[in-house]
């Protein structure tokens, strides 16, 4: 039940309620725990509540981190162990 996923906010309904799209499936969630959410933002949703807004720039940075070379292979390639 801990599984929570990033979803896109499609539309703000009334105060504190938004409609999100879960891969095409639309669902109402509560925005009671977050501020300044706009349509197009991604939020982490858990038990029907947005827990936090997702930072797209940080997501890019993390993806870039995955692709970086190993600390060893940069300078140590010839140092065969």
């Amino acid at each position: 039940m801990c599984l929570a996923i990033p979803v896109c906010v499609e539309q703000l309904v009334t105060e504190g309620i938004a409609v999100v799209s879960l891969g095409g499936v639309r669902k109402e969630i509560s925005l009671a725990l977050v501020d300044d959410i706009e349509p197009g933002d991604y939020v982490i949703v858990h038990v029907g509540f947005a827990l936090q807004k997702l930072d797209p720039a940080e997501a890019e940075r993390t993806l870039a981190l995955f692709a970086e070379m190993t600390a060893n292979s940069v300078g140590n390639d010839d140092a065969i162990r």
Binding site: L33, V34, L51, Q52, L54, D55, P56, E58, T62, L65
Partner: peptide, 18 residues
């Protein structure tokens, strides 16, 4: 912190306050 896209040092202060 590997999960910088959603986790900050202080977290969700609004939720903590509640």
């Amino acid at each position: 912190n590997e999960f910088t896209r959603a986790v900050t040092r202080n977290g969700n202060v609004k939720a903590q306050f509640l």
